[in-house]
Design a protein around this nucleic acid. Structure first.
Lengths: 152, 152
DNA sequence: CGCGCTCCTGACCTAGGCAGTCAGGAAAGT
DNA sequence: ACTTTCCTGACTGCCTAGGTCAGGAGCGCG
């Protein structure tokens, strides 16, 4: 139930690319500087993003990275899944494949709901939303509620 | 973004206790059998649940475990937090303490929303709900939507 | 009291993941 | 050719996950 450094970095790098827009490729080093991410680690992450088709890259002078699709067609969920794999697995298994015995029978439904609620947020926000600061209502509603900010 | 075996086990043991009700203490061994959890591991988990005041225990013949509070006053979130600590930390820090630079500025709001949406599910379901199978609408609504069951 | 039952606790273990670093190779541009 | 930048695998140190083992401490009962 925690967000890894890798996922956090990946989203930050991706939104940085979204913010730059179509002004040619961005060097890894610039992304690393802008978001204070260890360069070598970031390069591994960008490679994974490339492998899952979120990012493209070119080498050499004037090389760098850019988004493979328009920023409003890439959700946070896409980026997180690219580096962390499926969201909300329990015991490394997707919730729909788990069966429980006895009185825990309905626990599966809870995990399904957990995953669905995560998806509703992560799939509802695009890199474009994030870069512009215009958050969709699914985020805005939660953020407006003071209790969401309380530690617990 | 995954649910650990420990959390899964803890909830299953707790709901088993909820299902038994007030019929005296339940032995660890019976919980382990009922939910197919390794006994020795389960005992560690039950100890943690005891330390956070969710469960009580007595030793000796006729000893065992029982819920410290009524089952409808214990949420899944309580149980998960007892064994996993705070829900939805990013990089081991609570989202409200994180600050982002540059174009990732609004990312904090996303993590806040993620945590809030997790809470809305996990705090909305009690052990009594789970044991009875009468799920609250926050779960029921998600579960009713076929897309929630799709792998991705 | 003594004895068995059950929880309580710490120590230990192994495999694997997390968060990187290092070194070198391969394409692109000039 | 030569520099620049991405690409890739190997490696590392530390920590967590998921357990197991051995013994101790409290409880009830005859």
């Amino acid at each position: 139930m925690r967000v890894s450094a890798k996922a956090d970095y990946a989203v930050r790098a991706a939104v940085e690319l979204a913010a730059v827009g179509d002004d040619g490729p961005v060097k890894g080093e610039r992304l690393a500087d802008a978001q204070e991410i260890p360069l070598q680690f970031l390069e591994h992450i960008l490679l994974e993003l490339k492998h899952s088709g979120i990012v493209r890259a070119r080498r050499g002078a004037k090389g760098g990275y850019w988004l493979a699709r328009p920023a409003d067609e890439v959700s946070i969920a896409d980026v997180v899944r690219a580096v962390e794999g499926p969201i909300a697995n329990v015991q490394s298994q997707p919730p729909e494949t788990i069966e429980y015995r006895g009185s825990a029978e309905h626990l599966q439904e809870v995990w399904i709901a957990v995953r669905a609620s995560l998806r509703s947020v992560l799939e509802g926000v695009t890199l474009a939303d994030l870069a512009s600061g215009n958050m969709p209502s699914v985020v805005g509603d939660y953020v407006a509620e003071p209790d969401s900010w309380a530690a617990r």
